[in-house]
Amino acid sequence: MKYLIVGLGNIGAEYADTRHNIGFKVLDALAGASNTLFTTARYGDVAELKHKGRTLVLLKPSTYMNLSGKAVRYWLDAEKIPRENLLIISDDIALPFGTLRIRQRGSAGGHNGLKNIAELLGSEDFARMRFGVGGDFPRGHQVDYVLGEWTAEEREALPERLKVFGDAVLSFATIGVERTMNFFNKK
Rank of each mutant, 00 (worst) to 15 (best):
A127G: 12
N35K: 13
G109L: 05
Y145L: 06
A13M: 04
T18V: 05
R54T: 15
I81H: 14
A94D: 12
E84V: 10
L162Q: 01
G176E: 08
D17R: 00
Y3I: 11
Q104L: 11
M181F: 00
T180G: 07
S171A: 04
N35S: 14
T151P: 11
E48R: 14
G9Y: 04
T40D: 14
W75I: 13
K115P: 10
N182A: 11
T39Q: 13
S62Q: 08
L120P: 12
R83V: 06
G140Q: 07
R42P: 10
R83E: 09
N85R: 10
D136Y: 11
K115R: 10
G98M: 07
G44N: 00
L87S: 11
P159G: 00
Y64N: 09
L67A: 09
H141E: 12
V57E: 13
E178T: 09
S62N: 10
H20E: 01
G110K: 01
A157R: 06
A157V: 06
G69C: 08
K115I: 04
G135R: 14
G166Q: 02
I22E: 07
G132V: 07
R83N: 01
L87Y: 02
H20S: 08
D92R: 02
L27T: 06
K50T: 15
V143T: 09
R128Y: 13
D45G: 00
G135H: 12
I175V: 12
S62G: 08
E79D: 14
D92P: 05
V143D: 08
Y145C: 02
L37C: 13
L4E: 14
M65T: 04
A108L: 04
K163V: 08
P159C: 06
G148P: 02
G12Y: 04
E48Q: 14
A31C: 12
Y74L: 14
V26D: 09
L27Q: 04
A13F: 00
E154N: 00
G134C: 04
Y15P: 01
I81L: 14
I22D: 09
N185S: 09
R73P: 13
G135I: 09
E153R: 05
I11P: 00
R139G: 03
F172L: 02
R54K: 15
F137H: 03
V146W: 06
P138T: 08
A108M: 03
Y145K: 02
V169Q: 10
